[in-house]
Design a protein around this nucleic acid. Structure first.
Lengths: 252, 252
DNA sequence: AATGGGTGTTGCATATGTTGCAACGAACTT
DNA sequence: AAGTTCGTTGCAACATATGCAACACCCATT
């Protein structure tokens, strides 16, 4: 592992919290100011860091562009997108697509609700991993020891009274999800919002992504939302088939 | 400038084009495989790079999370957001917010159209700088020599027959925009889409961001869209006032 | 005006960290 | 079983990043 690069990259999350000046960066990195300056300069040349008028540094434009290009190159997303739009056309609610990566679950696509009341979420935002339907689906597919390890490492914030309280409850929920092949989040993240989700599988049957439909109580009740389950599962299966088809060749 | 960091960061745009294996990365960087390996490992530890099952590398999750945090900390965006939503409530069309940074114009916020026909765009995506209304507004505020330098450096792709053809036309357009205090893009990027935009100014009167309303021909004609101009300008001015107010202290 | 604290910046010698090499191991082909 | 191709490791030689100290600059204070 490279020390210099390591230090340079440590600057990024630091600046994500808000702009900082040279001194602050140097201090928080534990290096001399001149060192921090050179690292920042290099980051700047690559556009990852921007220098605002007051000379303080903050994250730069290219970061967005990179994240952008990256997400557009995900083939699951590309295949799934039209189906998500079609689903949104039929039911009107917010549709999400998420993947699991390095201990995190994150949205990689979203089709906004057509109803005026919308939920807050954004592509790239890490998902509330202990309660979200898509998170349950993605984690449920891991091996038993993997699930165990992760479940123990997680925090279990009580967003609402119906949030998953601890590792034991979470593991149990994952088993249920694994067996039934779909998942819900009934007010576990925000009191008034319910979600139902289904897994998208690759050719080998492993879950490569998960999709969900979310709607606030004020638009449809949880029971009404559940009537959409067959539709959601069918959509997920259609995407799975298409993805497995195009992705058939094992070596690329 | 740091050579090691420079090399490591050069990997990112390379991977943005698509996944690559160790050998390809090493070759395109012009370094030994072992060197590339160590750089990739460091990037990996910071989550900027992800290793998929076939061992190839691609851009990683934390990149999204970083871009995410960064965009949420932009104070213009925070102040503007509710106003953009309110504007969308009144007219129903897509509303964009953009800033200029390091020779690029990029969207930092977006409220989706409530109409079924939507335009394609995404937060973080660089804007078609020669035609977009927001780009004209942001560039029009630069000094004359700056505008000239940039205008000459740009390419002028003819997205449609109404795209800005060359630097001369662009500079002329910028002068117009500068004087009238608002801008349009009538089918200059996509034949069927029109936009109108207005600038958001800081306490010193300089343009810090630009907003626009976009709608396809099939929903409203260009003339109808133009009737929204007063509303758009009022919204921009409201945001400007609020931004100048909270941002008053010159030194932070 | 002059002083002082606060920035960001530069040149330089030291030694630390990075580099490429060559050799190994694993997975897959022939 | 021999032969590819790819990722990985240890090591010695060198290049490179590092901290220091001094400088330049801006602003506030006296």
């Amino acid at each position: 592992m490279s020390q210099t690069v390591d230090r340079a990259l440590s600057i990024l999350p630091l600046l994500a919290q808000g702009p900082a000046d040279l001194g602050q960066v140097a201090e928080r990195l534990g290096v001399h100011k001149s060192t921090a300056l050179r690292l920042l300069r290099t980051l700047h040349e690559h556009g990852l860091v921007y220098r605002q008028e007051d000379q303080r540094y903050r994250l730069g434009a290219r970061l967005f562009a990179l994240a952008q290009e990256a997400v557009e190159n995900l083939d699951v997303r590309e295949i799934a997108h039209p189906h998500l739009v079609a689903l949104n056309d039929r039911c009107g609610h917010t549709v999400h697509l998420a993947v699991y990566e390095e201990q995190e679950v994150l949205y990689i696509d979203k089709v906004e609700s057509r109803y005026p009341v919308r939920m807050y979420s954004r592509i790239g935002k890490p998902v509330a991993i202990t309660v979200a339907a898509v998170a349950k689906l993605l984690l449920a597919d891991l091996t038993e020891p993997e699930r165990r390890t992760i479940a123990e490492k997680l925090d279990y914030p009580m967003y609402t009274s119906r949030s998953t309280p601890d590792a034991a409850a979470f593991l149990k929920e994952l088993t249920v999800v694994r067996e039934q092949g779909w998942a819900t989040d009934l007010g576990g993240h925000e009191e008034s919002i319910n979600c139902i989700g289904a897994p998208i599988r690759g050719a080998d049957g492993r879950v490569v992504a998960a999709m969900s439909v979310s709607a606030p109580n004020v638009v449809v009740t949880a029971e009404e939302l559940l009537t959409l389950l067959p539709l959601v599962r069918r959509t997920a299966e259609t995407i799975s088939r298409e993805y497995s088809g195009t992705n058939r060749p094992k070596k690329v």
